[in-house]
Design a protein around this nucleic acid. Structure first.
Lengths: 341, 341
DNA sequence: CAAGTCAGCGCAATCGATGAAGCAAGATTG
DNA sequence: CAATCTTGCTTCATCGATTGCGCTGACTTG
């Protein structure tokens, strides 16, 4: 049963000091754990603790952080929460931050460049010690903003030129994935061409690298990827759906396989595949650069690449723990197959 | 090109005041937009703005919020980011908070009761004006904690007794879902029994209500649900997988249909179904209380209930906008079928 | 020209927590 | 018993931004 301060202001250390007939600084020392160093008696410590509990006291972080030198807040911006990859990044990030006594503040930017910058600016105002920019469309702008404010930053998932970046080995992952798609296409259709690459933004590094891996795997078969089969139409499900629709209407040869650049693109692709009655044995051999548990159950033998989120965040926190930022691009090999969580 | 303060402390309004040969209070007024009220000349305002930009100045929120009366921070705790339901809750929450000029701080608690309380306490320390407890295992404990600190709170997804709660109409949704499962079971197997209910915690309100809806739909068919067919084994995929394994070994009659309590439970259920070779036409009729785009494509005609996240968050923010909290339980009817995002 | 008005700004208190420095008793030492 | 330590506090400045109040000088008015 706690005695509420009648809906008025919050309890402060001054209120508690008065109730305990002591000083605010003694209360502060007791409540932040430095009381032994400051030679406060156990008797007083206990009394203060009890009263604080009775009053439902909670420290005012704004005041506390203002006074301290370090905020112990760590920020992250993330594009979306609508897929397992980013979901798992965020969960892992929070857990690893907490392990270190840091307070994680994450904010979602809907893949909107303006919101990204706005959110980064806001996090800087909250005195974050580090800012992790995940999948940012313009990472260098965020790095510059942080640098100007004296905040250390790093990039995750999509690399920037001006801050350390931790990303997947997109080229290698795409190469291996494409080889698996090719193998399946040969088994099902007797040939490995034509293949479609669909989803993602032609302007982002990951998509470019994945296209490069895609092309090089094709080249390994003596094939060449026609630009009209590279549909980097954006990430949203609707976009890949309409891109495929347009492709079908273009009269180009039907693909025997598809490299899909993300699960969210795969949503649109699958809708189109099913609408067009392309399921079953004559279905194109599919591969998806990202992992989803239900896709694994979809039954059409959709190949997946699972980005190694724990390893990526280990790399992120190893930079953070080390304190200083090596100007580096760290590429983490993704996992393959149906590896479970 | 911005002049960096050589990696030292951050720029403050005092630094800018000195550079602009004016006072900190004028700088503050200019930068927070109150300068017209305070009759600062446009000339000075412009000069200060320019210098602030050159210095890469960012307001220290800790200091600013300490002085102000309201924080404009709004907190949310959420169990997981591994499914579309919570992902969509978080995205919508952030967007709606921003629309209102509030700063959303969300933190993930891994369904761990201790972490929930810890996280809530932390958010209270950050002076949140409201705390939204999403899917909390012990909502009333969080409500009490907030009340003691003078923070308003409300529950989302799982209700509490001591704060307004916005949840889905679990009974109605489960009843309708069960009826669809029954119809499919009859079509496929010629009978509607036995049905299994699997996933969720017997201790939480939603699961209880869904079991109630399940039972009442069965009762509508003149059937009764045997307790041994109600497997509320928790939410994790592994738990439902092993629960089904154990059920299969128990020698009880094989079910003709299954009510699965969440997509994450469905993951485990589907793994078991496939491992046991129960796919195809003889598959049990499945229904899932929650929505996932790939489940819709799974092909076995899995029925889904999609909780109406936008409507739920409209209800949440209508309470927040109104400022005061009606002591109420608001039930939002879920959507049915393959309704798209 | 005295009195009043007003634009334009500065001063200083304040928010709550922190911690270095200091101070008053009692305990210990030589 | 005086000198020195130790214990257990208190005092006060500080973090950076905000804001009520007041000051100055230019301008207007009767």
């Amino acid at each position: 049963m706690s005695t509420r301060n009648r809906q008025s202001k919050k309890t402060t250390i001054y209120d508690i000091a008065e109730l305990a007939s002591t000083s605010a600084s003694a209360v502060s020392a007791v409540l932040n754990g430095t009381w032994k160093k400051r030679r406060i008696s156990a008797t007083l410590a206990e009394k203060v603790t009890r009263i604080a509990e009775e009053q439902g006291y909670a420290v005012n972080m704004q005041a506390s952080l203002l006074r301290r030198e370090k905020s112990r807040i760590i920020g992250m911006i993330v594009p979306k929460y609508d897929n397992r990859y980013f979901g798992s990044i965020v969960e892992t990030f929070e857990a690893m931050a907490r392990e270190r006594g840091l307070f994680p503040v994450i904010t979602c930017t809907q893949r909107d460049p303006e919101l990204e910058v706005e959110a980064a600016r806001e996090l800087v105002s909250y005195q974050v010690e580090w800012l992790v920019a995940t999948g940012a469309t313009d990472p260098d702008r965020i790095t510059a903003l942080c640098a100007a404010a004296g905040v250390r930053s790093l990039n995750l998932d999509l690399p920037g030129a001006r801050a350390p970046s931790v990303i997947s080995d997109n080229y290698g992952g795409a190469h291996a994935l494409t080889r698996r798609i090719i193998a399946n296409a040969k088994r099902r259709h007797g040939r490995a061409a034509p293949l479609i690459f669909i989803g993602g933004r032609g302007s982002d590094h990951n998509t470019r690298e994945r296209v490069r891996g895609f092309r090089s795997a094709l080249a390994g078969e003596g094939l060449e990827a026609d630009d009209r089969f590279i549909l980097t139409c954006g990430y949203a499900a609707e976009k890949s759906e309409t891109a495929l629709q347009r492709f079908a209407e273009s009269g180009l040869e039907a693909p025997v396989g598809m490299f899909v650049n993300s699960t969210i693109s795969l949503e649109g692709v699958m809708r189109w595949v099913i609408r067009s009655g392309l399921g079953g044995p004559q279905a194109p051999a599919m591969g998806c650069f990202d992992w989803d548990p239900f896709v694994a159950l979809l039954g059409d033998g959709i190949e997946m690449v699972r980005q190694n989120v724990p390893a990526m965040l280990n790399a992120v926190f190893s930079i953070i723990d080390r304190g200083e930022a090596p100007q580096a691009l760290i590429e983490i090999p993704p996992l393959h197959g149906d590896a479970q969580n």
